[in-house]
């Protein structure tokens, strides 16, 4: 770096300008604007007028807001914890020196690259009561039939979680596999010589050494889970009876079904702050509880 310090200070800025303009106009300024709009009563097509904090007051007294916050948290917790556990299991199994690792990896990852709307469609078909393939299989093995997988509020959320884990576990598995390559084989072999079984090896070597990866996985997957939209739109449209309305879906619905831009902006601000707090929390955890070696 030192050898190039004598470049004129303004020259580099020309190179930064295109990116800065785009990110400024479509990302940074809108972020400031959304804070501004959140203080205005603003129905699309009418003149906005200033109402101070009353949009927030309305939001925090709206039962739909609290319901969707709760739904978002349940969804995120289930997808992150369930998805990570499954992904870790497959990553560890694939890492045990089996053949055709590349093939299994590619197969488990396949759902992740498929268009979400297309795979949601087939799951919707599979979830149909009585004629769907899941109910068919249930009937064949004598389980109760005619289940409203996407037609009952409580079940719809579970169905959404199952779909999301199905489509994303291959991705998380890749992240875990990348983390596992950094753990020295010698350590595991030494443990094996000492008579530690695989269960013991996992908990006393792999798990602690994998903790930076695990944290990264949890951060990324939590943020992704909070920002889930497409499969909710394709599978349940936030229903039935708002049972699968998450914060992102609430923002969409408020703004583009009810054209209540002010209310949507207040929700968007809360959503932004939530993601920010979450990221901050996870960085704090990483400094306290994660083993980075050395």
């Amino acid at each position: 770096m030192k050898t190039i310090k004598h470049s004129p200070p303004h020259k580099g800025l020309w190179y930064l300008l295109p990116a800065l303009i785009i990110l400024g106009v479509f990302w940074m300024i809108p972020l400031v604007m959304v804070f501004g709009y959140s203080f205005f009563h603003f129905i699309y097509g009418t003149h906005p007028h200033f109402v101070g904090l009353s949009q927030y007051q309305q939001l925090f007294t709206s039962s739909l807001f609290w319901l969707s916050l709760r739904t978002t948290l349940i969804f995120a917790a289930a997808v992150v914890i369930g998805g990570s556990a499954i992904s870790l299991l497959f990553a560890v199994l694939l890492f045990r020196g089996i053949r055709a690792v590349g093939l299994f990896r590619a197969l488990f990852f396949l759902p992740y690259v498929m268009p979400v709307v297309a795979t949601s469609t087939v799951w919707l078909w599979m979830y149909q009561p009585s004629v769907g393939v899941i109910d068919r299989i249930f009937a064949m093995v004598g389980l109760p039939g005619n289940i409203g997988w996407v037609n009952e509020p409580r079940l719809a959320l579970i169905s959404l979680i199952i779909y999301t884990i199905w489509f994303s576990f291959g991705f998380t598995m890749l992240l875990f596999m990348a983390g596992l390559t950094n753990i020295s084989r010698e350590l595991l072999e030494a443990a094996e010589v000492d008579g530690a079984n695989s269960w013991r090896q996992f908990w006393s070597i792999t798990w602690p050494l994998l903790s930076p990866t695990t944290l990264f996985v949890v951060v990324i997957n939590t943020i992704n889970a909070f920002q889930t939209f497409t499969q909710i739109y394709a599978l349940t449209r936030g229903g039935p009876v708002n049972g699968t309305t998450t914060l992102t879906y609430l923002i969409y619905e408020t703004a583009f079904n009810y054209f209540h831009f002010g209310g949507a902006s207040a929700t968007a601000v809360v959503f932004f702050l939530l993601i920010l707090a979450l990221t901050g929390l996870q960085f704090w955890v990483s400094r306290k509880a994660v083993y980075y070696g050395g």
């Binding site: 990110l23 604007m33 959304v34 920002q227 939209f229 968007a268 959503f271």
Partner: peptide
Amino acid sequence: GRFSKVVLGLILATMMIPFYSILVP
């Protein structure tokens, strides 16, 4: 240059903005 650190900071900060939160503007 003098401002490149600040500009880099701004550019990287956009990674933290969820697109859902700036949908309306």
